[in-house]
């Protein structure tokens, strides 16, 4: 049994085999593995007795259920209207520079994924972003350099 098999088994034991457990189970996998691998989705399909296509169809609907491998730190920069007005583009450019990737990509060492996301409810403190579950507000290029710098040091 692989680690993924075990994780899926554990999550299904916790949430049950009914269809309404699908989202909590998928969220549990993403929490541990940062994304849903083919193996994980097939496993879930088997445990919940639904087709793999249905699992993928549901997962791909939601922006927090990634089906491509993601980095340890998933950066989600808000691109909705107020954050856009307050300088989101410059932030993204700064991060693309630092991480040497484009939006939508993951760094080679799988440390960072840089994504844009729709409104995260921090419009009054924009521009804002989430890194994993934590939020960062009133960002400037300088602040972003600091935040990423800290994380880079932490992981190297």
């Amino acid at each position: 049994m692989t680690k993924t098999n075990e994780l899926v088994k554990k999550l299904v034991e916790e949430h049950g085999v009914a269809r309404e457990s699908l989202l909590p189970v998928l969220q549990g996998i993403v929490k541990e593995e940062r994304y849903l691998s083919k193996e994980a989705m097939r496993d879930v399909a088997e445990q919940l007795d639904i087709s793999a296509a249905e699992v993928y169809g549901t997962a791909s609907f939601f922006s927090f259920l990634d089906t491509e491998e993601k980095g340890k730190y998933i950066i989600r920069v808000c691109k909705s209207i107020t954050c856009d007005m307050k300088g989101k583009c410059e932030l993204v450019r700064t991060m693309e520079d630092i991480l040497k990737i484009k939006v939508g990509q993951t760094t080679v060492g799988k440390r960072f994924s840089l994504l844009e996301t729709n409104c995260i409810g921090l419009c009054d403190q924009g521009p804002a972003m989430l890194i994993n579950d934590d939020y960062y507000t009133k960002l400037t290029p300088v602040k972003v350099r600091e935040i990423l710098g800290d994380l880079i040091r932490k992981t190297s």
């Binding site: 083919k38 087709s51 296509a53 791909s60």
Partner: peptide, 15 residues
Amino acid sequence: AVTEKGNEMRVSTFM
């Protein structure tokens, strides 16, 4: 299955 959403929504298969 129906996969993705919005302008990317399509009828497709597992992955």
